[in-house]
Computed example of a mutant assay.
Amino acid sequence: MSESQIIEVISEVRAHAANGVSAEAEFGTPEEYASSFPKSKRRTRGVRVVTAAVLIAIAYGVTVLALMVLFNFDIRAVTGPVTLWPALLIIVLGVLGGFLIDYLRPPPRANRA
């Protein structure tokens, strides 16, 4: 769930508790209440960076193959003896960048009134 949805649910539970109604009596145990919400995956910025890096690396591989087949161009003249180093470098930098983006991201602020 998104942060705003979580805040909304917590506010609703607190409002019921403030009216003298037991939250557990109204909503059930915390585990039961949590399982009543739909499960959805959230993609972080880091996952998006890794996905983009992998797609770019695949596009590089397809381009290299197409250049070799269609135009008889050998990419090793540009990249050196190892044809897939650029693709490997893109993937490694994407994974590292994605990890750092998620790891160094500051925690979200809650809108507290």
Score class of each variant (00 low, 15 high):
S40C: 06
A34M: 10
L84R: 01
A66F: 12
S36V: 06
G61H: 03
N19E: 15
E31Q: 13
I91F: 03
I91D: 01
V69R: 12
P81C: 03
N19F: 10
V78I: 13
I56H: 04
D74V: 00
A77M: 05
P30C: 11
Y103D: 02
A113S: 11
V13W: 15
G61D: 06
E8Q: 14
R45S: 07
R76D: 03
A34D: 08
E12I: 14
R76C: 04
V50T: 08
R76Y: 04
V50W: 09
A57D: 08
A77F: 12
I58E: 02
P108H: 08
G28W: 04
F99S: 00
Y60Q: 03
L65E: 03
L96S: 02
A18H: 04
N111I: 07
R42F: 09
V50R: 04
S2P: 00
A23F: 08
P106Y: 06
S40W: 02
H16K: 15
I10C: 12
V64L: 10
F71R: 03
I90G: 00
I6D: 05
K41N: 10
L88F: 12
A110F: 13
R43N: 11
V64K: 05
S36C: 13
V78G: 01
R76K: 13
G94C: 01
R14C: 14
